[in-house]
Amino acid sequence: MTVKEALEDYFLIPRKIRHFLRTKKNVQVNGQAVHWQCTLQAGDDLTLTFDPEDYEEKSLLAGDPSLVEVLYEDEHLIIVNKLEGMKTHANQPDEVALLNHVSSYVGGTCYVVHRLDKETSGALLFAKNPFVLPILNRLLEDRKIKREYWALIQGKLPQKQVVYKDKLGRDRHDRRKRIVDPKKGLYAETHVTILKVFKRTSLVKCQLQTGRTHQIRVHLSHHGHPIMGDPLYNPERGSRLMLHAHRLTLVHPFTLEPIQVEALSQGFEEILAQEKNGNDR
């Protein structure tokens, strides 16, 4: 590809930033400034230099770095273990959420790649700079970032593996909730596999093929297996929503190294142990 194609199509650099790179001559191939129609060859060293002043940095309230449990980190991205009960990002200017804590830990503004519901715990990916953010977003859209969740559900699935493809939309009667809406809903696909069956409940693995709001929660509830402790979709509530982002897998967009992390949740594991000891058959 040409230098222009690399910047636009592979690195997904916004037009404004490409303009700065061009005017400041901050793109070099093998140490030399080149024309943007120059074709890149295997083994070429492409160097991009970004000025922080070219990016508008969002101002965030300071967080608490001690609340950040790092699962993986390099100069471009960070994966952390989110606590149950903590928001991914703030909805109000005076709120402090995980994004604030991670940014304070890193020492600069980070960016949300995907989010977890407040009640959900587990592995969560953030970009450490605005350059890598659109690339990670594209990997997510192309389903190249794999997310595996564990859920404790009511009852037992009819078979070991099921695939739900119900379209999801907003609940007109409760703005917090989503519902299955075959006519106006957006396509959603969730793959569910039984891991362990207890007396009244089952531990299942859920893999997302799309990333709709409350997707796993709505799919399971709609098919008669709501997640234990779900405050919105399960009238039989428990101590916490038993949904945990257990594993996150991707290939690093720059180094091409495979990255796989697993997140543990003490509260989730304790409830599972109680379920096993009290109801395991």
Rank of each mutant, 00 (worst) to 15 (best):
S202T: 13
R212D: 01
T255S: 15
H89I: 00
V197N: 09
L12Q: 08
Q154K: 14
K16E: 14
Q209M: 13
K25Y: 07
E262I: 07
D9T: 13
H89Y: 03
A273Q: 15
E236K: 12
K58Y: 07
D230I: 03
P14S: 15
W36I: 11
K118M: 09
Y105V: 07
R172I: 13
P130Y: 08
Q209H: 15
V70S: 07
L67G: 01
R115H: 04
E270L: 12
E236M: 10
E148W: 06
L256W: 14
I135S: 00
N81G: 03
K87N: 09
K16G: 04
R22S: 11
E73Q: 12
L133A: 10
I78N: 01
Y72A: 05
E69W: 04
A42V: 15
T109F: 08
E75T: 13
D9L: 14
E8H: 11
L71F: 06
P226E: 05
L140W: 02
L48S: 05
N30S: 10
E270S: 13
F254T: 09
P134Y: 01
G108P: 00
Q209W: 09
R178P: 01
Q209K: 15
V29Q: 07
P65A: 11
L12S: 04
Q32A: 12
L195D: 07
V132G: 00
G43E: 10
N30K: 09
L140C: 01
Q41L: 14
P93I: 04
F126V: 02
E257L: 14
T23E: 14
S239K: 14
N277K: 13
D45A: 13
P158C: 06
Q41P: 08
Y233K: 09
H35S: 15
A151G: 07
W150F: 13
I135V: 12
H244M: 05
A245D: 04
G185A: 03
E53R: 11
S121E: 08
M242A: 09
G155A: 06
L133T: 11
T47I: 12
L98Y: 01
L77D: 02
T255L: 02
D181T: 06
M1N: 09
P158R: 07
G169R: 00
P258I: 08
D45V: 14
H76M: 10
L48N: 04
L186W: 12
D94M: 01
I135A: 03
E119V: 04
L195W: 01
S265P: 01
E269Y: 06
R212N: 03
M242Q: 10
Q161Y: 08
Q28K: 15
M228E: 12
K183R: 13
C110P: 02
G43F: 09
